[in-house]
């Protein structure tokens, strides 16, 4: 790797020594150069590499940092020894994995832009109070200039509160299922670790046991009607909220004479309808042309047959007259 200005071998040695020190029980400081080195290279590839790599690098960086941090904690737990510490280590592992699941969930159910920031500082489980970020968000919406009559803006307000509440309830309901999945996965993982047949000798194996336990618990839960309803509810609640935001945006656009999404949709729908009609008309024209062609061909053929018959009849007549003249 060009660039780093650091000796890679030396960095790897520093890493090795670091892990050794943790293992042997001596105090060890994480090699700072390593973190700087990783950050620097990540930045460099971000600049130079195709766009596809950027996301990959982010995932890679976050994942490796999490994994290394967890491994470090685990090693420190191990130094203490004893069954209690082992249980503690497994508990920590479960928490580490659960945190990753929660992060993935939050990412999946992203709110419309106007609301997204609210959840960054707010727990799903908190009750609604007057001064929480959720209500602040609703208040901020109230600060947008009132368009239309007073009654309309009041209706809008009621609607957004209703939709936001529904979203939060749906999310709470949905998250409950994930808490239950995590609980089942944890219990299944402990069962596996308690069987004599299982021998976990690496972090990777521990990780694999968690993945199997989680997927098993997950597949059981998602097949239940309750989960499917919760999934539908959160999907629909999020979409309703998004749609509301778009509709409000449309009102503002319209008020300043800009094209609205609704207007564009109507135009596209009409254009699509016309296109279908045009295709149908084109097909009709082609069919009619074919029929006309056939009709013309049929008429010509009939005329030819008639002429042919007439000529044959005339020939016969001439022949008869000739014969009569000879006699």
């Amino acid at each position: 790797m060009e660039n780093s200005g650091l000796n890679i071998e030396a960095l790897l040695d520093a890493q090795k020594n670091y892990w050794k020190n943790i293992t042997s029980g001596s105090d060890a400081q994480s090699p700072e150069e390593w973190a700087a080195f990783i950050a620097k290279n990540q930045e460099k590839i971000h600049q130079d590499a195709p766009q596809q790599f950027s996301q990959l690098l982010d995932i890679l960086g976050a994942q490796s940092s999490n994994f290394t941090q967890y491994g470090e904690q685990l090693l420190k737990q191990f130094k203490e020894g004893g069954e209690q510490h082992l249980s503690e280590a497994v508990l920590q592992f479960q928490q580490y994995m659960q945190q990753q699941t929660s992060e993935a969930l939050i990412q999946q159910w992203q709110l419309p832009e106007q609301f997204a920031a609210l959840f960054k500082t707010h727990s799903f489980q908190d009750d609604l109070l007057f001064d929480n970020p959720f209500i602040s968000g609703i208040k901020s919406l109230l600060e947008t200039p009132v368009i239309g009559t007073q009654r309309e803006s009041q209706e809008q307000l009621r609607e957004v509160i209703k939709l936001t509440m529904e979203y939060q309830e749906a999310l709470q309901d949905y998250v409950k299922h994930y808490s239950s999945i995590n609980k089942s996965a944890s219990s299944q993982m402990l069962n596996t670790l308690n069987t004599k047949e299982t021998k976990v000798s690496s972090l990777q194996q521990l990780h694999d046991i968690w993945v199997d336990a989680y997927e098993s618990a997950y597949s059981k839960t998602v097949m239940t009607d309750a989960y499917q309803r919760a999934h539908g509810r959160i999907s629909n609640a999020l979409m309703q909220l998004r749609k509301f935001v778009q509709d409000v945006r449309d009102i503002h656009f319209q008020s300043v004479g800009l094209a609205t999404r609704k207007g564009l949709d109507t135009a596209l729908q009409r254009q699509h309808k016309l296109r279908k009609e045009m295709r149908a008309n084109r097909r009709d024209v082609i069919e009619l042309q074919q029929q006309v062609g056939k009709l013309q061909a049929d008429t010509t053929a009939a005329l030819l047959i008639e002429l042919k018959n007439e000529v044959t009849a005339l020939k016969k007549e001439v022949a008869t007259l000739k014969n009569a003249a000879k006699r």
Binding site: L75, V90, E197
Partner: peptide, 28 residues
């Protein structure tokens, strides 16, 4: 926990290997 057979040396080696491969990934 019968199935828990992790030893410190293996785990520390695993973590080192993980980071070594990570480094290699950046190079690639």
């Amino acid at each position: 926990m019968n199935g828990f057979d992790l030893d410190l040396a293996t785990v520390s080696h695993e973590l080192f290997e993980f980071n070594r491969k990570l480094l290699k990934s950046y190079t690639t």
